[in-house]
Amino acid sequence: MSAPAAGTAIRTKSPHPSKFERAIVVGASSGMGAELAKQLAAEGAHVALVGRRESELEAVAATIRAAGGRAIVAKHDVTAYEDVPRVYEALTKELGGLDLLVYCSGAQYNPDESVYDFAQDREMIEVNVIGAIAWTQLAAAHFEAQRGGTIVGISSIAGERGRRTMPGYTTSKAAMSTWMEALRNRIARYGVNVVTIKPGFVDTAKTAHLTKKPMVISPAKAAELILKAAHRGGSPSVFVPGQWQLVALIIRHIPSFLFRKLNL
């Protein structure tokens, strides 16, 4: 809504757009991130794929381009926090602005209960929390200024409770969910759509080792549900698929003295 003469100066709140024109997907080399990138491109978005594994990113980008979509690629390790502004600025410049940022990078270890591994816990916090903060807050500052934009953070239902089987992971996802909630409370009033996604089991490399995966869905299905939530606007926090909402409600209310006895 800015007049040519007013340059970048004046922006008024704009309605939530029906489609995303320019998107960055952080953690796009595989799983949900790769699917999100493909589906966004199929909707017509110009997508920037960010991740550590350049060849995988290129492969996803090639698929997108083969289908007639537009994609660019940036090799970046989300724990190289000081690189985030440079990568963000280079990509938004190339895309000509930004409507959507998806933070999909995640580290997950499910160590045996006899293991106390600080390096793994630290990595999960660094990737799932600090990396998420570095990326989403930069987008938040720009989106607040432009009075619009969507930030999607892929957290997890695992963040609802601290679980004996995955202390580091559940802690990291609780922190990420809280961060996303705080961000929403801070900037939703400026017309920025801050979306928290809490998936249950998604059939990806991260869950390959698990034997029991109730209500498991494919990454493609997860991506579809995530985009649906992002398109809806109104800064929702959603479980993917939605049935997990009921499970989460129950889990959140199990008293601590009982919860510690459950093999969760």
């Binding site: 008024t12 690189d83 500052a141 200024a145």
Partner: peptide, 16 residues
């Protein structure tokens, strides 16, 4: 470039 904090600032007229 990499470490300075970011701020959303406005002109006195709020609109910019």
């Amino acid at each position: 470039r990499n470490t300075a904090p970011w701020r959303v600032l406005d002109g006195f007229g709020i609109s910019a």
